[in-house]
Design a protein around this nucleic acid. Structure first.
Lengths: 241, 241
DNA sequence: CACGGTATCGACAGCCTGTCGAGTCAGTCA
DNA sequence: TGACTGACTCGACAGGCTGTCGATACCGTG
C-alpha cells in the first residue's frame, strides 16, 4: 500500500507529450496516469521554487509525485522533458496574455507597448521559478534552447512588423532594420527580466522595470517617449499635450 | 614514462588561485607545476571550442594536460575553478581594452560609445568559447555568477557616471535614473552579444551588431543618434553636419 | 476467465565527481 | 652519503546520478 503525497493538478495535460494514453475517465483505486503526470509537473514547479533544476533529481520528482524513479520514466523521457512541458504552458500563457492586449497601437502607442511589455512581465513573474529554470536548462538542453529560440523569433517578428507599421504611419522615423531593432529590444527585455527575477547581478527594481524598459523601447523606436497617436497628423512634432 | 600532449602556455598563472607553489625556477625532467596549470587552462580553452562545458569531464582536462584525473585535483579544486580562472583572464583583458579607449566622450560622443561597445565585442569575440562557457556555468556555479555580477556592476557604474556627465554637460536630456538606464543597456549588450556568438535564437548579424547596439544606446541616452560634441553649444539642436 | 494494455518497481550498468593513502622524485642539509 | 622534506602523481574507492530491462501487478473487455 502506498501514499500519494501530491494531489493532482487541475487537468491540462502537457500538449508537448505525444500521449499514448488516449481516453480518460478511468477511476481506479490508484491515481490515473493523468493524475501522475500532473503530480510530476506540480512537484517540479514546487521544487523549482526551493532549489535550482540541477539540484533536483529525477528521484526527487518521482518521490514528490508518489512514484518510484523508474516509473517517472514511464511518464517523461527525462528531467528536461518535464521542464519543456512546463515551458510550453508558460509560453502559451504569455501568448494568450499578448493576445488580450487591445490592438490599438495607433491610437496611443506608449500605452500599447507598455501593455505588451507588462504582459510578459506579469506572465513570467507569475511563473518565476519555471522561467529561471528554463533559462538555466537552455544552456545544456538543445530542445529547450530550440523551443525558446522559436518563441523569441515569433515575438521578434511581431515586434518588427509593428515597428514597420509605425514607420509607414509616419509615427516612427526610419532607421535600423526593423528586425534588428526588434531583436535587440526583445533580447534586452529577456535579460533584464531574468536579472530582476533572479536578483542576479545589477538589476532594476521590480516595480520600475516595466517603465524603464518601455522608455528605452520608445526612444529606440520613435526617438521620443511621446510619439504621436491617431489624433496627431503624420510627421507632426510631438509637442501637443 | 609518460607523454606531455599539451605544451605550456606562456606564463600568466591565474591570479584567482591562492597559489601554494611559491618560487618558480625549478626545471626537472618532468614539467613543472606551472606548466601543468597552464596546460590544463590551454586544454580547457581548446576543448571549449569543440564542445560545451557540461560535455567536458575532469578526465578530459586531465588527459589533455597529460596527467591523471586525481592529479587534476592537485591543481584545481573543480572543473568550474578552471572556468573561473579563464574568465578572470578574459575580464582582465576586457578591462584593459576599455582602458585603452581614449577618454574623449565630450568631443565626439558616438565615437566614444562605439569604441566602448566595440572593445567588449572584440574581447569576447576573441574568447568566444570561454565567454559562452562562463555564461553557461553561471547558472549552476555561484562563484562564476558572483564574479560576473561584480564585473557587470562595475561596468554599469562606469556607464551610469558617463550618462550623468553627459546630462550635466547638457548633451543628454534628463530622464530615467542613470543607473537604471545603464543596467538595461549593459544587459542588452550582454544578451545580444551572447546570442550573436552562440547563433542562439534570433540574433543580429555579427558585422552589424556593434552599430545596432550603438544606435539603441544613443537613442536611449540622447534621444538622437547625433548628439552634440564639444564644438556644439549646449542645448543646440543637432542639425549641424 | 483469459487476455492485453497500462502502470509499477527492483536491480543493474555506466558515467561522473571528489577523496584517500601510498608511492615517486629532486633537492637539501647534517 | 643518507635521511628528510615537500612537490607531485596515481590506483582504487565511495557515492550520486541517469536511464534501461525484465518481472510483476492491476483493470477493463470480450
Amino acid at each position: 500500500m502506498r501514499a500519494w503525497p501530491d494531489g493532482s493538478v487541475a487537468g491540462m495535460s502537457s500538449p508537448a507529450r505525444s500521449g499514448t494514453r488516449s481516453a480518460r475517465g478511468r477511476r481506479g483505486v490508484r491515481p490515473s496516469g493523468d493524475d501522475r503526470e500532473g503530480a510530476i509537473l506540480a512537484t517540479a514547479e514546487r521544487l523549482l521554487g526551493e532549489r535550482s533544476i540541477s539540484e533536483i533529481s529525477t528521484d526527487d520528482l518521482a518521490r514528490g509525485a508518489g512514484i518510484s524513479r523508474p516509473t517517472f520514466y514511464f511518464y517523461f523521457p527525462s528531467k528536461d522533458a518535464v521542464l519543456l512541458a512546463l515551458l510550453d504552458r508558460v509560453v502559451a500563457e504569455a501568448d494568450a496574455a499578448l493576445d488580450r492586449v487591445p490592438d490599438d497601437m495607433a491610437s496611443d502607442p506608449p500605452r500599447y507597448w507598455r501593455r505588451c511589455i507588462a504582459a510578459f512581465h506579469e506572465t513570467f513573474s507569475a511563473h518565476r521559478p519555471v522561467a529561471l529554470a528554463c533559462a538555466a536548462a537552455r544552456v545544456t538542453n538543445a530542445e529547450v534552447r530550440e523551443l525558446w529560440a522559436r518563441v523569441m523569433s515569433s515575438w521578434t517578428l511581431l515586434v518588427a512588423e509593428a515597428i514597420e507599421c509605425e514607420r509607414r504611419r509616419g509615427a516612427a522615423p526610419p532607421g535600423l532594420a526593423a528586425r534588428d531593432l526588434a531583436v535587440v529590444l526583445n533580447s534586452m527585455n529577456e535579460r533584464v527580466l531574468h536579472a530582476t527575477f533572479a536578483q542576479d547581478g545589477p538589476a532594476v527594481a521590480e516595480a520600475d522595470v516595466v517603465d524603464v524598459l518601455l522608455t528605452v523601447w520608445l526612444n529606440a523606436i520613435y526617438q521620443t517617449t511621446t510619439p504621436p497617436g491617431d489624433a496627431d497628423s503624420p510627421q507632426a512634432t510631438p509637442d501637443s499635450s
